[in-house]
Design a protein around this nucleic acid. Structure first.
Length: 705
DNA sequence: GAGCACTGC
């Protein structure tokens, strides 16, 4: 048989996606001129009404190509599998691998970027195998695990597999690793891909990748399956020595796409007009509008309500639901309830609705084509800051948003940008590794003895960004002046914290205030924000915060809140605690997550021989000194004009308006992060005596031994 | 005096 390298193999019975053009036509100002159908495949006939789980499995698009797929997986060490949503690849491929014996005696790991995905997929696949989750099929995510000695298929978050890498650098328990959602190119996916390539070379005694010439020394070979959406498949294939690309058809209802004839600089106004055009001209069906951020959502919310009131009395009403991450949980939950009788539901969402949340019943999507992107600007030594600015989305994002209209039936998508603008969009987002802080990743790679210069990344991070991370690690005492990992650095990497917070926690041992610092870093490293901050409640929230305010600033204010929360729990129990949070406008999600993190960190501390119960009582200096050890590179001095000048770095920063120290002119500050929006703002700020700062940068290194 | 997309250990 002729070797077919780097070619598309059609596993399903449809044409490969490169031939499918996303035809679309212009939409003249707003009146709808012409519509074009998305040339979609399987005219979603929907799920069969009643069928056994096995029948459902057999009806998935991927089932048609099962034999061909299994054959390819058997023959190739690396396979790139392209499949759209609804193809069933994530649930079926691991089962095919298991059932066909490809995985031998080893386990199959399937990675996911998000926790919910990992746990729910494991549950689904366990059902299909007719076993309970945690047996043959299990999962492992932070704070939650269901697996046993019998587990053969394990769904894990990519971060979890990286943790496993630290204790088992060859991932020897696994014979197959499936990297799912690889097109998202998260920092952790890229780290895994780079490491997997090295691991496979070692375990398979690579001889150039020629089929049928496997060396006899191959004891415990590793197979890699990379699963991705269509756009980046070639790149993954090239990265793995022109690995075979297989294509699987998806299942999605057709969505009619419209573009505007002219660009719409005022996209909020354009969204408003488009919404009412749909509302008055189109049949019933819910509307989902994608906007970049909270501010736009709040404005559009007001405008829609204003105009809806002016509609004729007999016209159907509009029920508006905002949806973004900072919204309190009970308001987020509201979007899943159906609209009041005779009203059209209109959801205003950030890209939280693009992948994280699926809202049922959406027939119309309005896409502003904008999103906010966090980007790290690295300067000289550790003085970089994050920006959070509105920018154009990518083509894959646009297609994802469009797809949200076709989940349950044929739908419509109104793009508030021209067809030309769509064509000009980048295909997919720039990988995170090129725009994020690398401090934590580089510390982990150091623990794996990986040489950054020789490690093969899909996209190599730029030298400036690596240099900045190395400089930060050196300042924190995690590496020495030969860039070698220190004992302190190894301990820091063991803690599930960002290096600055890990350093602060390690320092707390020295200052005998571990309990306090543990409480603070647990909240700081929680993924949700502590304060609920919507425009309408901003004043009330600030008022509530004043009660907990500590004169030294935000870190000790956080500590006061944690203490009150714990007391509230002791005296009032779970429901009292919840009520209390609501009243104080505190986000309980953050505090609950902090409780989990604290539990995990205290276990980690015990393993490192640290007594985490050591407390400094009411003293504040030990706490500030500990924090300063981690935040040396994030400190600034007051200038005569009231602004702050970074100690390491060129920038002048302001204290963020949400901080308890805003407008308090203290001589020196440390901060959790810098964010550039309208100014460079320092967030999470504490006041420290100037004298503390000078001594720290020297001390950090001296004690790192 | 002004405002913050989304994840992970």
């Amino acid at each position: 048989m002729k070797k077919r390298r780097h070619s598309w193999v059609d596993v399903g019975d449809d044409e490969p996606p490169r031939k499918r053009k996303y035809k679309s036509s212009r939409l003249d100002s707003h009146p709808i001129k012409k519509k074009v159908k998305r040339p979609d495949s399987a005219e979603g006939s929907g799920k069969p009404k009643t069928s056994s789980i096995q029948e459902q499995r057999n009806q998935l698009p991927i089932a048609h190509g099962k034999d061909a797929l299994v054959r390819e997986l058997q023959e190739n060490d690396v396979t790139v599998l392209v499949g759209e949503t609804g193809s069933g690849k994530t649930t079926q491929v691991p089962q095919y691998i298991l059932e066909s014996g490809i995985s031998g005696r080893g386990m199959i790991a399937v990675t996911q970027p998000r926790k919910v995905a990992a746990t729910s997929l494991a549950t689904r696949v366990a059902q299909e195998q007719n076993v309970s989750v945690g047996g043959l099929v299990g999962y492992s995510v932070r704070f939650d695990e269901a697996s046993s000695q019998n587990t053969r298929i394990k769904y894990v978050t990519d971060g979890m597999l990286i943790r496993e890498l630290l204790s088992d650098p060859l991932l020897s328990r696994y014979s197959v690793v499936v990297i799912d959602e690889a097109h998202e190119r998260t920092l952790r996916t890229d780290l895994l891909l780079a490491n997997l390539k090295t691991i496979q070379k070692t375990r398979n005694s690579y001889t150039g990748g020629k089929k049928g010439k496997e060396p006899a020394s191959k004891q415990n070979p590793l197979k890699i399956v990379v699963m991705s959406a269509t756009l980046d498949a070639d790149k993954f294939s090239r990265f793995f020595g022109n690995a075979k690309i297989l294509y699987v058809q998806g299942r999605q209802h057709p969505v009619t796409v419209y573009h505007t004839a002219n660009s719409q600089p005022d996209y909020v106004d354009a969204a408003l007009r488009t919404f009412f055009q749909i509302h008055t001209d189109q049949p019933p069906g819910d509307v989902l509008i994608f906007l970049p951020g909270q501010e736009d959502i709040e404005n559009l919310d007001k405008s829609i309500k204003l105009y809806a009131d002016r509609l004729p009395k007999d016209a159907p009403g509009v029920a508006v639901y905002p949806m973004y991450a900072a919204l309190p949980a009970h308001k987020q939950a509201a979007i899943f309830s159906s609209a009041p009788q005779g009203m059209r539901k209109c959801i205003l969402a950030t890209n939280i609705a693009e992948t994280s949340i699926t809202i049922p019943g959406i027939k119309y999507v309005i896409d502003t084509g904008k999103c906010k992107e966090k980007r790290y600007i690295s300067r000289d030594t550790g003085s970089g800051f994050d920006t959070l600015l509105t920018k154009d989305i990518t083509q894959s994002s646009a297609m994802q948003r469009t797809g949200r209209a076709g989940r349950e039936g044929p739908g419509f998508c109104f793009r508030l940008y021209t067809e030309e603008a769509f064509s000009a969009m980048p295909l997919s987002a720039e990988p995170e590794i090129l725009r994020c802080t690398l401090t934590s990743s580089i510390l982990q790679l150091k623990c794996l003895n990986q040489d950054l210069e020789t490690l093969d990344f899909m996209d190599k991070p730029d030298t400036e960004s690596v240099g900045s991370a190395l400089a930060t690690l050196y300042l924190l005492g995690a590496i020495d002046d030969t860039k070698a990992l220190t004992k302190l650095g190894r301990d820091m990497a063991f803690l599930p914290l960002e290096p600055p917070l890990a350093r602060a926690l390690m320092a707390s041992v020295e200052f005998a205030c571990t309990l306090e610092v543990l409480n603070i870093v647990s909240v700081l490293s929680a993924s949700s924000k502590l304060f609920i901050d919507t425009t309408e409640s901003r004043e009330t929230a600030a008022e509530a915060r004043r009660k907990f305010r500590h004169p030294s600033g935000d870190h000790l204010t956080v500590l006061n809140i944690v203490k009150s929360y714990e007391e509230m729990h002791k005296s009032q129990g779970k429901s009292g605690r919840k009520e209390w949070c609501k009243k104080q406008l505190l986000n309980e999600r953050c505090l609950l997550e902090a409780v989990d993190i604290k539990k995990q960190l205290s276990t980690s501390c015990e393993r490192l021989g640290i007594d985490w119960k050591v407390s400094c009582g009411e003293a504040e200096y030990p706490i500030l000194k500990s924090l300063l050890r981690g935040l040396v590179h994030q400190a600034a001095f007051l200038q005569p004009d009231g602004s702050y000048k970074q100690i390491m770095g060129p920038s002048t920063v302001k204290i963020h308006p949400g901080s308890s120290l805003c407008d308090k002119k203290v001589p020196a500050i440390i901060y959790d992060e810098l964010v550039y929006t309208t100014h460079i703002y320092a967030r999470g700020v504490s006041s420290v005596p100037r004298s503390f700062i000078a001594e720290v940068s020297v001390l950090n290194r001296r004690r790192s031994g």
